[in-house]
């Protein structure tokens, strides 16, 4: 096992993430229950989408206090890659591992559509050259409206911490333009150190020929690049 996918009560994208990483990217992944310790061999963590603890109180507010979150905090402080998708993004924001907060979509509706997005040049591996100027990833959320106060937002932008923005012209129909009222059209961010990612769109849902697209593969590979660049250690028998 190299990639841990944390499963909370109410997580529902854990198997999709497992399939994308295990079968499509080809890195051995395992689902890890939120009351377990993070396995010592973990090299990257996915906090998957869903409705952890029924989204009660606020999205991610209760999951943030799950036992595994202490291990996750330690893992991320040591530079371990952590990627929160949709509800996972909300959990990482609540836990303070990512800046900002996600509130109700300004349209009030739950938005479920294949969304046009513009990647930013954010890190060595997450950039337009590798991902393209425009990509499409599904969104499915009611609380994806990203909020951050003006000073912190300026710092976020100045540091290049925005990963993705909602893009496209709304006249082109659903999936184009800002679907939820997020400030600066922000769909995904990273922490200052560059090892913790979070986004509302679902890359794990566009990785197979029968999916609406394949753009999720490059997004997941960009996050997992530290694991993909290294040659696996060969076990040499005596």
């Amino acid at each position: 096992m190299r990639v841990a996918i944390i499963q909370f009560p109410g997580s529902n994208c854990d198997w999709d993430a497992w399939h994308a990483i295990n079968d499509v990217i080809g890195l051995p992944a395992e689902r890890v229950w939120h009351k377990s310790a993070l396995p010592v061999e973990t090299e990257a963590v996915i906090v998957p989408g869903g409705f952890s603890f029924g989204d009660y109180l606020r999205c991610g507010a209760i999951a943030r206090f799950s036992p595994i979150m202490e291990d996750l905090k330690t893992f991320s402080e040591k530079g371990g890659p952590v990627f929160g998708i949709c509800n996972g993004f909300q959990i990482l924001c609540e836990a303070g591992l990512l800046p900002g907060a996600l509130i109700r979509n300004n349209c009030i509706e739950f938005r479920c559509v294949n969304q046009c997005l513009a990647p930013e040049d954010s890190t060595e591996n997450f950039n337009r050259a590798d991902l393209g100027e425009k990509i499409y990833l599904p969104i499915a959320h009611g609380e994806g409206n990203y909020r951050l106060d003006a000073d912190d937002l300026s710092a976020l932008e100045a540091n290049g911490q925005v990963l993705l923005r909602y893009a496209g012209d709304p006249v082109d129909g659903p999936g184009h333009g800002n679907p939820n009222g997020s400030v600066n059209d922000i769909a995904g961010v990273r922490n200052a150190a560059g090892n913790v990612f979070g986004m509302m769109p679902h890359p794990e849902r566009v990785v197979e020929p029968f999916h609406p697209g394949l753009d999720g593969i490059d997004v997941l590979r960009a996050f997992l690049s530290p694991l993909l660049e290294e040659e696996p250690v060969e076990m040499v028998s005596a």
Partner: peptide, 13 residues
């Protein structure tokens, strides 16, 4: 309560 500076879509509805 939502902070005065934060928009409240539920309140608006």
């Amino acid at each position: 309560s939502p902070k005065p500076t934060v928009l409240d879509p539920q309140g608006a509805a």
